[in-house]
Design a protein around this nucleic acid. Sequence first.
DNA 1: ACCTCTTTTAGACATTGTCTAAAATTATTA
DNA 2: TAATAATTTTAGACAATGTCTAAAAGAGGT
Lengths: 135, 135
Amino acid sequence: MKKAVEILNKSNIRPTLQRINILNVILKYKNHMSAEDIYKILQRETPTISRATVYNTLNLLSKNGILAEVITPDSVRYDYVEKFHHHFYCEKCKKVYDIHDEFSVPNIKKIDGHIVKNIQYCIVGICKNCLNGGE
Amino acid sequence: MKKAVEILNKSNIRPTLQRINILNVILKYKNHMSAEDIYKILQRETPTISRATVYNTLNLLSKNGILAEVITPDSVRYDYVEKFHHHFYCEKCKKVYDIHDEFSVPNIKKIDGHIVKNIQYCIVGICKNCLNGGE
DNA sequence: ACCTCTTTTAGACATTGTCTAAAATTATTA
DNA sequence: TAATAATTTTAGACAATGTCTAAAAGAGGT
């Protein structure tokens, strides 16, 4: 599985073992996980991984456009995005769903003098599954 | 300053002392504060106020449409909204700014089978003030 | 090898939010 | 009014999320 290494190299990010592992977790589970989720999964394999490394790496990958930060009411989730899409957050089960409907987001780089780095919809509600009583 | 009691009564929420105080803090400071901010301010006057009361009340007021929950990457902020507007979050100073530009938000009640309760933009970047070196 | 720069670690600390059982308050009924 | 029922608040433990720092480990260039 050399995809992670390629992705890192393309952005001139030194492909350390930790970074590869972190990216691989995201590529494998496609769950919109929080940093803590990713940290916990990695700890099972490599108990010495540091929380700071996970947070720093996720930040680095986001800054380089490799990951999208999905903002939810309870945490930031990370998503490896190949095709742009929106996200829906269920306030009951806390899951994030991809939304492929194409409503547009204004393409602004600056507003009222502030520099815009990231603009996204936060769509919050109760998901299909929870409406049916959860599982 | 519009009466907190009136606002509560109009929504049939029993105007207890704690609820009045909480709402008054929001009406007075127009700062897009987090629950913790509000809790800390109230503690100065009434040290016995409970964190749970603050969180429960903010929730109740939001559910009744009295307050808007502004979702940011680090916390939910509360805003007493008279006229609908958007928000900008500065990732450096953590401040939230009102944005009165009118780009529209899709008016959807349901998407992919999920019920939508709240849809808003998350606009993140560096604010005008921090660009000028902060204060 | 040596030196320098980058990266990771460990763990304390801070912030944000949830939960619960008991106490206090308010409303309702007898 | 007194007794009872329902609502609200409290205190504080607990949980989840995120930041920070100094020291150690690792990698690259000469």
